[in-house]
Simulated assay, not measured.
Amino acid sequence: MAKIKIIICNPSGLHNIIKKYQNCSMGELTTEDIILQKKIAERIESLRLKTGLSQTDFAQKNHIDRQVINRWESVKNARGVTVYSIQKFCKMVNITLKDFFDDDSFNL
């Protein structure tokens, strides 16, 4: 209970705690994470291109914003793509999540 009082009463103390935990392993992407992120983005783009649709047309067909597709396909997106977004995309192109990752690019 005393720790909670210190955090509430001392915002700078809270700032130091947050700063300390920002340096945890979840804070920055490793090289392996970046490579995986790139492979996912490239796989999404490849599967969308197989539909023959532009980002705009694909987005309209699936009732989502074009910027969402752009973010999913971007290798520069710092946030990456969640597994939930990948699953949503898979439904749009009529494949399973397993099919999505069962690609040679993920086996290297």
Rank of each mutant, 00 (worst) to 15 (best):
A78E: 15
D33H: 12
I64T: 10
D65K: 09
N23F: 08
F58W: 13
L29P: 14
K50H: 10
E45F: 06
S46V: 01
A59R: 10
V75H: 02
D65A: 10
R79Q: 13
S74R: 06
Q67H: 12
G27Q: 14
S74T: 04
N77Y: 05
G27D: 11
I34F: 03
V68D: 11
L47D: 07
H63V: 05
T31Y: 08
F58T: 09
Q55G: 15
A59E: 13
K20H: 14
A59P: 14
L29T: 06
E42V: 01
K38D: 10
R48C: 03
I64L: 15
W72M: 14
D33Y: 04
T56Q: 14
K20F: 14
K38M: 01
G52D: 03
G52H: 04
A59V: 05
L53P: 03
N70Q: 14
I69A: 08
R43M: 04
I40G: 02
N77T: 01
K61D: 08
F58N: 13
G27Y: 10
D33L: 02
L47H: 04
T30F: 03
W72A: 02
K61Y: 06
Q22W: 06
I64W: 13
G52N: 07
S46C: 05
A41N: 05
Q37Y: 01
L53Y: 06
N23C: 11
N23K: 15
Q60S: 12
S54N: 07
E32P: 01
E73N: 03
G52W: 06
L29V: 08
T56W: 14
L47C: 03
S25N: 13
H63F: 12
D65G: 02
E45S: 13
Q37H: 14
K39S: 01
S74P: 10
D57H: 07
W72C: 01
S74K: 07
K50E: 12
I64Q: 10
S46E: 12
E73V: 00
I44D: 05
L29S: 15
S74Q: 06
I64A: 06
I69T: 08
S54P: 10
T31L: 11
N62C: 04
G80S: 03
I40D: 02
V75D: 11
T51M: 05
A41T: 05
I35M: 07
F58C: 13
R66D: 11
T56N: 15
G80I: 00
N23M: 10
I35L: 08
R48Y: 02
S25C: 08
T56G: 07
G52T: 01
I44Q: 07
K38W: 00
I44E: 04
I69C: 11
Q22S: 12
E32Y: 09
I44F: 02
H63D: 15
A78F: 09
I44K: 03
E45H: 14
R66W: 09
S54Y: 10
K61Q: 13
C24Q: 14
V75R: 13
G27V: 11
D65C: 07
Q22D: 07
